[in-house]
Amino acid sequence: MHSSRIQLSLQQLEAFVQVAALGSFRAAAAQIGVSQPALSRTIRQAEQTLGARLFDRDTRHVTISPVGGELLPIAQRILREFDSAFSELGQFMQGSRGRVTVAALPSLGSALVPNAIAAFKKHCPQAEFTLMEAPAEVLLAAVEDGRADFGLSVRPAPDLRLQYQHLLDDSMVLLCRADDPLAGRSSVPWSVFAQRPFIASQPNSSIRPLTDAVFLQKGLSIRPAFESPSVSACGGLIGAGLGLAALPQLALDLVNMHRLVAVPLVRPHASRPIGVVTRIGRTLPPVGRAFITRVLALHDPRVYAIPRA
């Protein structure tokens, strides 16, 4: 056997392993689905490459040679690894394995994404996820520059290289203390914020543009009593009696609702549009496409129950 690298093809290794397993050229040819002369030619080419016989054969018996006995476990391992590798590639191409990076608003990272990932992994347990949470502006930038495969966020501005697929409308509610007179109301108009201290979200959040737009539409000049750094901090400020806030329903998962109540906001009814955001022209990994398809197809567009005291 030459000391240089041995060049045996997968076809030759498979033919060799089948003859060794079945002890017959005829049976091995039938198993592989080739003619016996073709199989014999394949084995002969392998022997020429090795410079040694793989089988000792006569008219009635086929016996593996010492070189064949040495080659057999190596060939079996190579074929197993080849099958395993291409099985993994097939699973990747089908979207049942691979890694996907999802960027989500903090409220969605708490209320929607974990359940979506859990449901997906029941069918595709080998899929792996990296979850990023960020305000809308940072999140959309992560999708645009490729740090995230896709985002779950509000509708992006039209000047960005992003595509938006609508998922749900996240209705706005008023958040107040349970002992507030407003807590017992079935709904509250937006004009209430003209009479009570208003706790606003940060300007770079997905909530602030929506509340600002409603106030502009209603002709309300509202000066925030506080600009809360986060949704959870907003709940703390309200609990301390420092004002009221307008929040999307899904954001309530980030709030300690003990002693707080959410009431629907009306006149007008307003909601935060939530959808899947991808970068135009980017090829997503198959697992990412499969996850998006399942989220869009299986999402329950129900109206989320509003926590009450």
Rank of each mutant, 00 (worst) to 15 (best):
I280E: 08
A136H: 09
G51W: 11
L131C: 12
G275A: 03
P203L: 06
P285I: 03
L167N: 12
L168D: 09
S84C: 02
L260V: 13
S4A: 08
S65G: 07
P156C: 09
D83V: 04
S171H: 14
R185D: 15
V214W: 01
G51N: 10
I64T: 07
L8W: 07
Q7I: 02
L79P: 08
A200Q: 05
V255E: 13
S35Q: 10
V102E: 06
G239Y: 04
A103R: 01
S9W: 03
A46G: 11
S84N: 11
L50G: 07
P301W: 03
L296E: 07
P286E: 05
A136E: 15
A270K: 01
R97C: 14
L216I: 08
L250M: 15
Q36A: 04
E137G: 14
D212C: 07
D300Y: 00
R294T: 04
Q12C: 07
A240V: 04
I117Q: 11
T101G: 10
V154A: 14
S205M: 02
R26S: 12
A27E: 14
P209K: 02
R185M: 12
V67Q: 12
D253M: 07
A297L: 00
L10H: 06
G151T: 11
P135C: 12
I222Q: 02
V295C: 09
D145Q: 09
H269T: 10
D170N: 14
